[in-house]
């Protein structure tokens, strides 16, 4: 099946559709063009990697997809819903029920235990998992009652993943999830993400500047200078277990 065929097959299963997306930041008197007309899609059950050097616009793209930032021009739709026209309250609702986030620095609530950090999300979700189950998925059954200060970086990141998946989101957006971790711990985190994508079918977009990680994706979207430079598809997804960097 060619790339084109796959695309045709998935036409009805488009999660995100991005058209001519541009974002200009004003930093004092300087205008920074973070995105200069990006076009892409994300399909159901797909795992994509957004690859590019720092400043290429990948975080900006992810933030707009996640409803954390607004575009200067262009169009983003999520399941046919126009995100670019959405108001603040609508974006909050969108994040609350549809998106799971994983960040480089975990962003856990230090005053809550692992279990409670997941419960923070399940309490407000529509159709959540049990927090214990989400933590079991990332292999943290033994650490439910530990506070972030008592967990290693990798464990904290896995709590963040459990938190992201616990609401059964349509899509997972991960910004440099292994950025703050050593490679061994990074692999464990990627395995968790891969397992969630495989078992739950959650469409997943992962940002990284680490080329080696790209091998675990269905497709790799290369960004450069605010544009999509190239999209490549992996015939076979490599298991994170076999990736080393």
């Amino acid at each position: 099946m060619t790339d084109q065929d796959k695309k045709m097959n998935n036409q009805g299963n488009i999660v995100f559709s991005v058209r001519d997306l541009a974002k200009i930041y004003k930093m004092g008197e300087v205008e920074v063009h973070a995105l200069r007309g990006a076009n892409m899609e994300l399909f159901s059950k797909e795992l994509i990697i957004l690859l590019g050097p720092s400043g290429s616009g990948k975080s900006t793209l992810l933030n707009i997809l996640g409803g954390l930032d607004t575009a200067t021009s262009g169009f983003v739709s999520y399941r046919g819903r126009d995100l670019t026209a959405a108001a603040e309250a609508e974006l909050t609702e969108y994040r609350r029920f549809h998106v799971g986030f994983v960040f480089q620095f975990y962003n856990l609530i230090p005053s809550l235990t692992a279990l409670e950090n997941v419960a923070v999300v399940t309490e407000i979700a529509k159709n959540p998992m049990k927090p214990e189950d989400a933590l079991a998925l990332v292999g943290l059954t033994e650490r439910l009652d530990h506070f972030p200060a008592q967990l290693s970086g990798g464990e904290q990141q896995r709590v963040a993943i459990a938190r992201a998946i616990s609401k059964n989101p349509e899509v997972m957006l991960c910004d440099e999830p292994t950025g703050a971790l050593d490679s061994q711990t990074g692999v464990v985190v990627l395995e968790a993400l891969e397992r969630v994508n495989r078992e739950l079918g959650t469409a997943t977009a992962i940002i990284t500047h680490n080329v080696d990680i790209a091998a675990m994706a269905d497709r790799v979207i290369h960004l450069s200078n605010g544009r999509i430079a190239e999209v490549t598809a992996n015939k076979v997804r490599k298991s994170p277990h076999d990736i080393q960097w």
């Binding site: 909050t92 969108y94 994040r95 609350r96 029920f97 962003n107 856990l108 923070v120 999300v121 407000i124």
Partner: peptide, 16 residues
Amino acid sequence: SRELSSLRVLGYTRGE
């Protein structure tokens, strides 16, 4: 502010 922003990202409203 950091944890409150994190909660906003997770879908908590301003009021919450």
